[in-house]
Design a protein around this nucleic acid. Structure first.
Lengths: 220, 220, 220, 220
DNA sequence: GTCTAAGCGAGACGGTACGTCGAGTCTTAAA
DNA sequence: TTTAAGACTCGACGTACCGTCTCGCTTAGAC
């Protein structure tokens, strides 16, 4: 994250004691520790502040509540996501799926992600924060993978920008949604075999869709 | 639900005042009302008991906590899911996706589903309850749709029972996961256009995968 | 105190678990202990509840705040005040002064009395509670002593009830006010010598006033 | 007050920016305003600093806490007390009682006086400060009134300095204590009628006591 | 005329207590 | 034995003040 201080940009005026930069890092790390040990529902602001060696008021000065804090704490995990060029679209998809699955194996992510999404169903601001802090971080991998596949000729260029965006969104929802569902709802392992099967399904789907409505109609 | 009383089978002995059957229904309805008005995180056991005109003790005698109660309350919503024969696999998929999306538009489902999944990441028993009360209800639609498609010849029969089961699981995770992600994480509408696109992707994927690894390799 | 439960009479309806009578006693004793150890300003509701082995909510269910609680706790000390017949008005006065001074030597009374009076300057309800719980307990000694003196012929009967009441009030304010001021404001000891001097002053004053405006005018 | 800056004498060294003299006055005035509006227990240092247009640091550089600040703020009120010669001891007493009662009608004095006395029961330094800032200011009126009465021949000279001092103290405690008790504990008005009655009692007491133990024994 | 040590405003900081709320249990009397 | 009622313990909440600190900026006397 470029700007770890969350709610208010740090220097509104120029007077007064400046906010401790170290505190931000300590708090977010403490939040992740608490998530691992206690899980979302048993995590408390007081506990986090104690772990971080910080007063509770310092937390509330920077984050308006538990959800916001946890989003920022978990978002940092997503900074580690990357997409090296594995040579083919198929390999890239398998890599990104495995990487995301590994992230979902981390207890702090498991317990926190669905929780903040649940909260966000009744909180517009939280939804925006999740989008910018987490979703966008994931989506850029899809964008990158798609561009590479287009450069390789594996996928056609889409000239209509709106359509291109919608396609990216769909691919993203399919990949992220399916992996999350497998890992957290079905509680089944995301292992190499499953990833290969899922990737194959997705590859067929992408290539068939790319051929498009004008392509060979799905045979019954 | 056949047995709405959840934790303890109703009549362990036979003496004493029997449990009110009406109470169960009232409690679950009150729970859904409270979910609509307050959302998961602001729903309280005391509030539910007050809405249901029931003592808190009565709640705790039947459910061990908020998560269990909400799972049962929301599970009843899934009883309305059904899959009439629409004539083709494609139409069946579109129907099931739209139906599930409609369910996710209900505020009680939006706020509760992800929340109980989040809770279940640290609670084995809750995970089982979600599986039997919710997931299995959804999955039978996939099983049914697949059988119909096989009967129609749209999809091949899979003789290996284990493999068949895995394929069903994958399809289920793709459909349910993608729709949930679209609706709750990306917060985008699941409209006819999107459903058509997604269904097309899935159809190509299924047919390609059905042709199998021995089928035509995905062209680059 | 006849009714240790303070704010609400115990049985408003007849259902539900009744309030613990033991808790009242434990809380008031804990309050006095805390006053002795910590003093008024460092006494906290949380500390009292911990000492009493009681939840904080139980305190707040019975008393609306620290002031009310402390008034009730200290009021019990005043139950020990009594006025045995010492044979003469002078002896009775000396006895009551010494007894009150002894009470004011107790740290819980020293620290609490002025504090609740200070609070009561902005709180009508608290003022009433102090009056009924503390002031009236003290004043009855004055009433009793005066009646005895009248029976002995040391003081004349006052036929006008209003005037009689005003005289009692004056005597009470003089005795209680002077002793409190000596003990807490001037911080001087209320010893036998001082008591004798003060009592003499008061005796002359009472007898002179009793002789009344029609009595011998104060000589210059 | 000669030296309004309380805790540290202003110029310990000689270099550096000197303390603002205006700040002291502004702070004490703000303190009195806050006492009137909020009362002792709701008055906060932060509020006072805001009212005075001063940083909290500036307060704490001059006073060690709320009690000290309030003592100084209220003490200034006592500067207005004076005792013009009314021609007789009786008139002087009535005057001083009425004047003191008027002071106790001011909300800032009502709420603050008992509060700081309560605090002082556990704080030696505060007790000294109250004595020098408030009590001594009151007591000099008694000393003055007594000297005048002696000059008039209304009261005898007391040669034993210690005894004289003790008598002054007693008179002071009787007057101040009785008035405070009437005004703040009994919450009854200190009106002309009451003052006359009280003064009469006191006059008889003083004259009887002045006649002394060797004087006519109080008749039964 | 600098130099410099203190005062000053602003406001973040680590704490402690607040008074409230919800969870889940327990104790009554009535059904 | 279940029920409604409600008191109970426990623990977290989010806020308010406390008194301290760290900033950058005066300000006035010493050099």
């Amino acid at each position: 994250m470029r700007n770890p201080s969350s709610d208010t940009s740090c220097p509104p005026g120029r007077t007064g004691r400046p906010r401790s930069a170290a505190a931000d890092a300590a708090i977010l790390a403490a939040t992740r520790d608490a998530l691992v040990e206690l899980g979302w529902s048993k995590l408390t602001m007081g506990d986090v502040s104690a772990r971080a060696g910080v007063a509770k008021t310092t937390l509330y000065r920077r984050w308006s509540g538990k959800s916001e804090l946890v989003v920022d704490a978990v978002a940092e995990l997503f900074d580690s996501l990357e997409l090296p060029d594995r040579g083919s679209l198929e390999a890239d998809i398998e890599y990104v799926v495995l990487q995301f699955a590994a992230l979902l194996r981390r207890p702090e992510a498991r317990t926190a992600l669905m929780a903040v999404v649940a909260e966000s169903t009744r909180d517009e601001a939280l939804r925006d924060r999740i989008r910018s802090a987490i979703v966008d971080r994931q989506k850029r991998l899809v964008v990158l993978g798609r561009e590479r596949a287009q450069a390789r000729g594996e996928l056609p260029y889409e000239e209509d920008a709106s359509l291109a965006s919608h396609t990216t969104d769909l691919i993203f929802d399919v990949i992220a949604g399916t992996v999350v569902h497998r890992a957290l709802v079905s509680s089944e392992p995301v292992d190499e075999l499953w990833v290969a099967t899922f990737t194959a399904l997705l590859m067929y789907g992408l290539q068939g869709s790319a051929a498009g409505p004008s392509g060979p109609a799905p045979a019954v």
